[in-house]
Protein backbone atom coordinates (compact mmCIF):
# COMPACT_ATOMS: atom_id res chain seq x y z
CA UNK A 1 0.00 0.00 0.00
CA UNK A 2 1.48 3.36 -1.00
CA UNK A 3 1.85 6.16 1.56
CA UNK A 4 -0.97 8.20 0.03
CA UNK A 5 -3.46 5.32 -0.05
CA UNK A 6 -2.76 4.28 3.55
CA UNK A 7 -5.75 4.94 5.83
CA UNK A 8 -5.14 7.59 8.49
CA UNK A 9 -8.19 6.42 10.45
CA UNK A 10 -9.37 2.81 10.53
CA UNK A 11 -12.70 2.02 12.14
CA UNK A 12 -12.74 -1.75 12.47
CA UNK A 13 -16.02 -3.59 13.15
CA UNK A 14 -17.07 -1.03 15.71
CA UNK A 15 -20.19 -1.48 17.80
CA UNK A 16 -21.51 1.13 20.22
CA UNK A 17 -24.32 1.19 22.77
CA UNK A 18 -25.76 4.34 24.28
CA UNK A 19 -27.33 2.95 27.45
CA UNK A 20 -29.54 0.12 26.21
CA UNK A 21 -29.78 1.49 22.69
CA UNK A 22 -27.50 0.12 20.01
CA UNK A 23 -26.11 2.98 17.89
CA UNK A 24 -23.69 0.95 15.76
CA UNK A 25 -23.42 -2.71 14.88
CA UNK A 26 -20.21 -3.71 13.23
CA UNK A 27 -19.31 -0.54 11.32
CA UNK A 28 -16.02 -0.53 9.37
CA UNK A 29 -14.67 2.58 7.66
CA UNK A 30 -11.22 3.48 6.39
CA UNK A 31 -10.46 7.18 6.01
CA UNK A 32 -7.69 7.76 3.46
CA UNK A 33 -4.73 10.07 4.04
CA UNK A 34 -5.33 13.62 2.80
CA UNK A 35 -8.45 15.04 1.22
CA UNK A 36 -11.92 15.51 2.68
CA UNK A 37 -13.95 12.53 3.85
CA UNK A 38 -17.55 13.36 4.62
CA UNK A 39 -19.58 11.16 6.95
CA UNK A 40 -23.29 11.67 6.33
CA UNK A 41 -26.46 10.32 7.74
CA UNK A 42 -29.77 11.39 9.24
CA UNK A 43 -29.89 13.25 12.58
CA UNK A 44 -29.42 10.92 15.52
CA UNK A 45 -27.70 8.17 13.54
CA UNK A 46 -24.51 8.61 15.60
CA UNK A 47 -22.24 10.59 13.29
CA UNK A 48 -20.93 12.80 16.10
CA UNK A 49 -20.56 9.70 18.27
CA UNK A 50 -18.24 8.29 15.61
CA UNK A 51 -16.21 11.50 15.63
CA UNK A 52 -15.96 11.34 19.43
CA UNK A 53 -14.73 7.75 19.20
CA UNK A 54 -12.08 8.73 16.64
CA UNK A 55 -10.66 11.36 19.01
CA UNK A 56 -10.92 9.04 22.01
CA UNK A 57 -13.63 10.90 23.92
CA UNK A 58 -15.86 7.81 23.70
CA UNK A 59 -14.85 4.15 23.68
CA UNK A 60 -16.53 1.70 21.33
CA UNK A 61 -18.45 -1.17 22.93
CA UNK A 62 -16.75 -3.56 20.52
CA UNK A 63 -14.25 -3.40 17.67
CA UNK A 64 -11.24 -1.12 17.32
CA UNK A 65 -10.33 2.35 16.09
CA UNK A 66 -6.87 3.17 14.81
CA UNK A 67 -5.68 6.73 14.24
CA UNK A 68 -2.14 7.32 12.93
CA UNK A 69 -1.71 3.57 13.48
CA UNK A 70 -2.43 3.82 17.23
CA UNK A 71 -5.23 1.89 18.91
CA UNK A 72 -7.24 4.80 20.33
CA UNK A 73 -9.41 2.89 22.86
CA UNK A 74 -6.27 1.46 24.50
CA UNK A 75 -4.45 4.78 24.97
CA UNK A 76 -3.95 6.25 28.43
CA UNK A 77 -4.61 9.95 29.07
CA UNK A 78 -1.01 10.99 28.38
CA UNK A 79 -0.81 9.20 25.03
CA UNK A 80 -4.31 10.32 24.08
CA UNK A 81 -3.33 13.95 24.64
CA UNK A 82 -0.17 13.43 22.54
CA UNK A 83 -2.36 12.04 19.78
CA UNK A 84 -4.78 14.96 20.03
CA UNK A 85 -1.94 17.44 19.54
CA UNK A 86 -1.85 16.10 15.97
CA UNK A 87 -5.59 16.74 15.55
CA UNK A 88 -7.81 19.80 15.39
CA UNK A 89 -11.53 19.79 15.96
CA UNK A 90 -14.26 22.27 15.14
CA UNK A 91 -17.39 21.79 17.22
CA UNK A 92 -20.98 22.32 16.15
CA UNK A 93 -21.38 24.91 18.94
CA UNK A 94 -17.96 26.41 18.06
CA UNK A 95 -16.97 25.91 21.73
CA UNK A 96 -14.98 29.15 21.97
CA UNK A 97 -13.82 29.84 25.52
CA UNK A 98 -16.18 32.62 26.54
CA UNK A 99 -13.84 34.29 29.03
CA UNK A 100 -11.07 34.77 26.45
CA UNK A 101 -10.85 37.18 23.51
CA UNK A 102 -10.73 35.95 19.91
CA UNK A 103 -6.93 36.33 19.89
CA UNK A 104 -6.53 34.42 23.15
CA UNK A 105 -8.88 31.68 21.96
CA UNK A 106 -6.77 31.04 18.88
CA UNK A 107 -3.54 31.36 20.88
CA UNK A 108 -4.81 28.96 23.57
CA UNK A 109 -3.59 25.65 22.05
CA UNK A 110 -0.17 27.20 21.38
CA UNK A 111 0.16 28.59 24.90
CA UNK A 112 -0.91 25.32 26.51
CA UNK A 113 1.03 22.89 24.32
CA UNK A 114 4.18 24.71 23.20
CA UNK A 115 6.95 26.90 24.59
CA UNK A 116 6.93 29.27 21.62
CA UNK A 117 7.95 32.87 22.31
CA UNK A 118 5.18 35.44 22.55
CA UNK A 119 6.21 37.17 19.31
CA UNK A 120 5.91 33.93 17.33
CA UNK A 121 2.56 33.07 18.94
CA UNK A 122 1.29 36.51 17.94
CA UNK A 123 2.41 36.08 14.34
CA UNK A 124 0.93 32.57 14.07
CA UNK A 125 -2.40 33.66 15.52
CA UNK A 126 -2.64 36.67 13.21
CA UNK A 127 -1.79 34.48 10.20
CA UNK A 128 -4.51 31.97 11.10
CA UNK A 129 -7.06 34.71 11.73
CA UNK A 130 -6.12 36.32 8.41
CA UNK A 131 -6.69 32.98 6.64
CA UNK A 132 -10.30 32.91 7.84
CA UNK A 133 -10.79 36.68 7.38
CA UNK A 134 -11.18 37.38 11.09
CA UNK A 135 -7.95 39.27 11.90
CA UNK A 136 -10.02 42.40 12.54
CA UNK A 137 -11.93 40.67 15.36
CA UNK A 138 -8.86 39.74 17.41
CA UNK A 139 -9.76 42.03 20.31
CA UNK A 140 -13.44 41.07 20.43
CA UNK A 141 -14.97 38.63 22.89
CA UNK A 142 -16.86 35.55 21.58
CA UNK A 143 -20.17 37.07 22.76
CA UNK A 144 -19.63 39.94 20.29
CA UNK A 145 -19.39 37.63 17.26
CA UNK A 146 -22.18 36.35 14.99
CA UNK A 147 -22.63 32.60 14.48
CA UNK A 148 -20.72 32.60 11.21
CA UNK A 149 -17.87 34.69 12.63
CA UNK A 150 -17.59 32.42 15.67
CA UNK A 151 -17.34 29.41 13.39
CA UNK A 152 -14.53 31.00 11.41
CA UNK A 153 -12.65 31.80 14.63
CA UNK A 154 -13.23 28.20 15.76
CA UNK A 155 -11.77 27.08 12.44
CA UNK A 156 -8.70 29.26 12.98
CA UNK A 157 -8.25 27.74 16.45
CA UNK A 158 -8.66 24.20 15.11
CA UNK A 159 -5.89 24.78 12.55
CA UNK A 160 -3.47 26.84 14.64
CA UNK A 161 -1.29 23.83 15.52
CA UNK A 162 -1.19 22.79 11.82
CA UNK A 163 -2.84 19.43 12.59
CA UNK A 164 -2.47 16.35 10.43
CA UNK A 165 -6.13 15.46 10.99
CA UNK A 166 -8.99 17.95 11.13
CA UNK A 167 -12.38 16.93 12.49
CA UNK A 168 -15.52 18.97 11.80
CA UNK A 169 -18.74 18.31 13.69
CA UNK A 170 -21.69 19.66 11.66
CA UNK A 171 -19.80 22.71 10.33
CA UNK A 172 -22.69 23.83 8.09
CA UNK A 173 -25.50 23.82 10.66
CA UNK A 174 -27.25 27.06 11.63
CA UNK A 175 -25.48 29.39 9.20
CA UNK A 176 -26.88 32.05 6.86
CA UNK A 177 -26.22 31.48 3.12
CA UNK A 178 -23.19 33.80 3.01
CA UNK A 179 -21.53 32.26 6.07
CA UNK A 180 -22.38 28.82 4.72
CA UNK A 181 -20.58 29.59 1.47
CA UNK A 182 -17.59 31.01 3.36
CA UNK A 183 -17.26 28.00 5.68
CA UNK A 184 -17.63 25.51 2.80
CA UNK A 185 -14.90 27.32 0.86
CA UNK A 186 -12.63 27.56 3.93
CA UNK A 187 -12.90 23.85 4.75
CA UNK A 188 -11.80 22.99 1.22
CA UNK A 189 -9.07 25.64 1.04
CA UNK A 190 -7.57 24.91 4.46
CA UNK A 191 -7.49 21.17 3.79
CA UNK A 192 -5.60 21.79 0.54
CA UNK A 193 -3.33 24.51 1.95
CA UNK A 194 -2.33 22.46 5.00
CA UNK A 195 -2.14 19.27 2.89
CA UNK A 196 -4.05 17.59 5.66
CA UNK A 197 -6.89 15.09 6.14
CA UNK A 198 -10.35 16.39 7.03
CA UNK A 199 -13.26 14.36 8.36
CA UNK A 200 -16.53 16.26 8.11
CA UNK A 201 -19.63 14.98 9.84
CA UNK A 202 -22.80 16.52 8.44
CA UNK A 203 -26.38 15.93 7.40
CA UNK A 204 -26.27 18.78 4.86
CA UNK A 205 -26.26 16.90 1.56
CA UNK A 206 -25.53 19.76 -0.84
CA UNK A 207 -22.58 21.24 1.05
CA UNK A 208 -21.27 17.84 2.07
CA UNK A 209 -21.20 16.50 -1.47
CA UNK A 210 -19.77 19.74 -2.88
CA UNK A 211 -16.53 19.49 -0.88
CA UNK A 212 -16.21 15.73 -0.39
CA UNK A 213 -13.50 13.58 -1.95
CA UNK A 214 -15.07 10.52 -0.31
CA UNK A 215 -18.49 10.05 1.24
CA UNK A 216 -19.63 7.54 3.85
CA UNK A 217 -23.37 7.23 4.42
CA UNK A 218 -24.50 5.90 7.79
CA UNK A 219 -27.97 4.79 8.78
CA UNK A 220 -29.68 2.20 10.99
CA UNK A 221 -26.38 1.59 12.79
CA UNK A 222 -24.54 0.38 9.68
CA UNK A 223 -22.54 1.85 6.81
CA UNK A 224 -25.14 2.07 4.03
CA UNK A 225 -22.82 3.17 1.23
CA UNK A 226 -19.46 4.76 0.49
CA UNK A 227 -17.65 6.19 -2.49
CA UNK A 228 -17.07 9.42 -4.35
CA UNK A 229 -19.94 11.93 -4.47
CA UNK A 230 -20.58 10.97 -8.10
CA UNK A 231 -20.83 7.28 -7.23
CA UNK A 232 -23.29 7.95 -4.44
CA UNK A 233 -25.43 10.24 -6.56
CA UNK A 234 -25.62 7.51 -9.19
CA UNK A 235 -26.58 4.88 -6.63
CA UNK A 236 -29.92 3.11 -7.01
CA UNK A 237 -29.90 1.88 -3.40
CA UNK A 238 -33.26 3.04 -1.90
CA UNK A 239 -31.70 4.21 1.42
CA UNK A 240 -29.07 6.27 -0.42
CA UNK A 241 -31.62 7.78 -2.79
CA UNK A 242 -33.99 8.68 0.05
CA UNK A 243 -31.28 10.48 2.02
CA UNK A 244 -29.53 12.27 -0.85
CA UNK A 245 -32.80 13.44 -2.44
CA UNK A 246 -34.57 14.20 0.85
CA UNK A 247 -37.59 11.95 0.18
CA UNK A 248 -40.04 12.08 3.12
CA UNK A 249 -40.92 8.37 2.99
CA UNK A 250 -38.96 5.30 2.05
CA UNK A 251 -36.75 2.80 3.85
CA UNK A 252 -36.58 5.35 6.69
CA UNK A 253 -40.32 5.50 7.48
CA UNK A 254 -42.19 8.79 7.94
CA UNK A 255 -43.88 7.45 11.09
CA UNK A 256 -42.10 6.70 14.32
CA UNK A 257 -42.99 3.10 15.32
CA UNK A 258 -46.35 3.09 17.10
CA UNK A 259 -49.23 0.75 17.86
CA UNK A 260 -52.24 0.45 15.54
CA UNK A 261 -53.69 3.90 14.72
CA UNK A 262 -57.35 2.85 14.82
CA UNK A 263 -56.85 0.98 18.08
CA UNK A 264 -55.06 4.00 19.59
CA UNK A 265 -57.94 6.35 18.65
CA UNK A 266 -60.66 4.06 20.02
CA UNK A 267 -58.80 3.26 23.20
CA UNK A 268 -60.29 4.79 26.35
Amino acid sequence: MSESSKPIVSIEEVGFFFGEKEIYANVSIEIPLRGISVIMGPSGCGKSTLLNMICGRLRPSSGNIKVFGQHVPNLNEHDLFRLRRRMGMMFQSNALLTDLSVFENVAFPLRENTDLPEELIRNLVLMKLEQVGMRGTQALMPSELSGGMSRRVALARATVMDPELLLYDEPFTGLDPVSLGVITKLVRELTDALNTTSIVVTHDVEEGLSIADYVYLLGDGVLLASGTPKELLASSQPEVRQFLHGLPDGPVPFHYPAKDYRGDLLER
Binding site: R57, F81, R84, M87, S93, L97, F108, E112
Partner: peptide
Protein backbone atom coordinates in the same frame (compact mmCIF):
# COMPACT_ATOMS: atom_id res chain seq x y z
CA UNK B 1 -23.22 22.41 27.66
CA UNK B 2 -21.44 24.64 25.12
CA UNK B 3 -18.74 21.96 24.61
CA UNK B 4 -15.98 24.19 26.02
CA UNK B 5 -14.79 21.39 28.30
CA UNK B 6 -14.81 18.99 25.33
CA UNK B 7 -12.86 21.57 23.29
CA UNK B 8 -10.22 21.73 26.04
CA UNK B 9 -9.85 17.95 25.93
CA UNK B 10 -9.48 18.11 22.15
CA UNK B 11 -6.75 20.74 22.54
CA UNK B 12 -4.91 18.25 24.76
CA UNK B 13 -5.71 20.28 27.86
CA UNK B 14 -7.12 18.49 30.89
Amino acid sequence: TTEQLAALEMMAVN
